[in-house]
Simulated assay, not measured.
Amino acid sequence: MSVSGIVNVTPTSEARAELSRTLDRFRRQGLEAEPLVFGGHRRAEAVVLPFEMYERLIPAIEDIFLAESIRARLATSGPNELRRVRHEGARHDAAETDQQ
């Protein structure tokens, strides 16, 4: 599978009609299969991709949500919160080292 800035957007009605063929292509090509990008008025609105690729993307998706949560928390509490978390983390690491 290649990743490029050019995306071929399939109209929704065509994507619906192609779904069975797309699934067959995913079965044959696995991770190498190009995702099906579809939407209305040539605007990408959704993607269908092989499940194996989705499974590989889950950790990255979780990281994105975690980063957004951290940014939101920092925005409401400021940089002192980051210093406090770092300090607490360092104390926790030191305590674990002492116990070993």
Rank of each mutant, 00 (worst) to 15 (best):
3 V>Y: 15
43 R>E: 06
70 I>V: 14
67 A>K: 15
98 D>H: 02
58 I>M: 14
31 L>I: 02
56 R>M: 14
84 R>D: 02
25 R>S: 06
25 R>T: 06
90 A>W: 01
34 E>I: 07
22 T>I: 00
66 L>R: 15
52 E>P: 08
72 A>P: 00
17 A>P: 02
17 A>N: 10
47 V>A: 07
82 L>V: 06
31 L>N: 04
44 A>V: 05
76 T>V: 14
45 E>Y: 08
53 M>T: 11
22 T>C: 01
91 R>H: 05
58 I>D: 04
3 V>W: 13
60 A>Y: 15
42 R>A: 15
85 V>P: 01
87 H>P: 01
94 A>D: 03
4 S>M: 06
67 A>G: 07
33 A>M: 04
96 E>K: 00
65 F>Q: 14
42 R>W: 07
61 I>W: 13
47 V>P: 03
78 G>C: 05
77 S>T: 06
71 R>Q: 12
6 I>V: 13
21 R>S: 09
47 V>H: 06
73 R>Q: 14
24 D>E: 07
79 P>H: 10
48 V>C: 04
15 A>L: 00
43 R>M: 10
49 L>T: 09
92 H>E: 06
95 A>M: 02
26 F>T: 00
80 N>R: 09
34 E>S: 13
11 P>T: 01
82 L>H: 05
41 H>C: 11
52 E>M: 11
84 R>M: 02
26 F>E: 00
80 N>W: 09
40 G>D: 14
69 S>Y: 13
19 L>H: 03
20 S>A: 15
1 M>Y: 13
18 E>L: 01
100 Q>L: 14
22 T>R: 02
55 E>A: 12
7 V>Y: 12
21 R>W: 06
69 S>C: 08
69 S>H: 13
29 Q>V: 00
76 T>H: 10
82 L>D: 07
21 R>Y: 00
48 V>T: 04
52 E>D: 13
68 E>S: 14
39 G>T: 04
2 S>L: 11
68 E>G: 15
68 E>I: 06
32 E>G: 11
8 N>I: 09
89 G>R: 02
14 E>K: 07
16 R>T: 11
35 P>H: 11
28 R>S: 15
26 F>G: 01
65 F>I: 06
96 E>S: 05
54 Y>E: 04
76 T>Y: 10
